[in-house]
Design a protein around this nucleic acid. Structure first.
Lengths: 220, 220
DNA sequence: ATAAAAATTTAGGGCACCCTAAAAAAATGT
DNA sequence: ACATTTTTTTAGGGTGCCCTAAATTTTTAT
């Protein structure tokens, strides 16, 4: 029903509206879609006609329930294909995003549900992001930022909130991958950088910029 | 480089030009693409500009070497995804074609070569059609039609030359799937129908229309 | 409160891929 | 051989998604 371009808009609106489902601005969409604001306005009018978004001129945009379900389907497909590529085909976690951007538009529900089963119903993708269920619910992953963990605390690395290839490659090189045991040894008050220990290895140093993009869970 | 629509044209020209690489007519393409002849002419002009086809007005069309390589890439992807869906996801052979029509346009060579390895470098798809190699060669499968096998001869079912779901479903129901051992028990001279035995089972009856769409190999 | 700046929409147009109608070329039948 | 039929191309136009330029609304700053 929704075209490839429409699906990309819905997914983007979902991501940009954040946990509070705030209104998304035309300019924010133009920036992320690599298009101009005028083109975004065109598309918003179309999505509104299809009842996929709530749209009042000059007022920003929110997904309707229907639009959100569409967005979650696309995100589910994206993340399942990422799991497939890493777990079954041996890709690294920093390589799979661009290919999943294409695979996510293959619509067959049968395909995606069988893939889900083949992968043993994973709950999160290789970056730690939760996978929406077949029934259209996004599991809420309540992680905290490594940057906010107090000294001495031990945590488990669960995922990232920044998905660029260079960042992911840097983490791999440091041994910081989902599942790692991390202990905060020292926090530098001045620039909020940290010294941490990863899986019993030698202490490592991470900047605040890095630490705030790493999601962790307090050790159970 | 080639758009989704262009890829579909190249694949279609490949299939319609047959083993002898004969010229394909505008009307034949219009019929198969579910479009009108005028639209086909538009596209042919575009493909010729990109050096993917040899095209002289009113003279029909052939693939260039470059165009054939593109077509073989698409066919390779299509057939590998079909193997994946049947072997790994448990689809039936009559279900996978429409989904593979979408998956075949995901261009990543890395993806497809890793998929190839994951599937153990299959030589043919679930319908017995050969899978082009990564280097762009179509393995020649020299099978004969079941319809041409003499009485008493034992053969192995290798594939089909008709890929519609109803035909494939009929074959499954009869136990006629690639790998089956088939012996021709009797041929009816009048309508060329056959009585055959499949894998030691009770004798079955197949019409000429069915027998000429089943590809077999003489038992080794 | 209102002028200036920023954000957004409208107007008008381009390219890819499709259409119908009409013209042109090729194939066919006598 | 040539009139008729069939095939193919050209002409002109439509929709989806993008653009620039100009107009409009909202926000910000004084």
């Amino acid at each position: 029903m929704a075209s490839l371009t429409e699906e990309n808009y819905l997914k983007l609106i979902y991501h940009l509206s954040g946990p509070g489902y705030e209104e998304v601005s035309t300019n924010a969409l133009a920036e992320q879609t690599q298009t101009k604001a005028a083109s975004v306005t065109d598309m918003l009018r179309k999505l509104a006609e299809k009842n996929l978004i709530h749209y009042k001129k000059y007022q920003g945009v929110r997904l309707t329930e229907e639009g959100q379900q569409e967005a979650l389907k696309v995100i589910r497909r994206h993340r399942l294909w990422e799991v497939f590529m890493v777990e079954k085909l041996g890709f690294r976690w920093d390589e799979v995003h661009p290919i999943a951007e294409e695979l996510e538009h293959i619509a067959s529900e049968e395909l995606i549900n069988r893939l889900d089963a083949f992968l043993d119903f994973p709950e999160s993708d290789p970056h730690g992001d939760p996978i929406p269920t077949a029934s259209g619910r996004m599991p809420s992953a309540e992680y905290e930022k490594l940057a906010e963990v107090p000294v001495q605390q031990e945590v488990i690395m669960m995922g990232v909130s920044e998905h660029t290839a260079p960042f992911l490659q840097f983490l791999s090189k440091s041994g910081l991958i989902p599942g790692s045991l991390v202990q905060v040894l020292e926090v530098n008050e001045f620039d909020r950088s940290m010294t941490i220990q990863i899986n019993e290895a030698h202490p490592s140093f991470v900047s605040y910029e890095v630490a705030r993009n790493i999601l962790v869970q307090t050790k159970v």
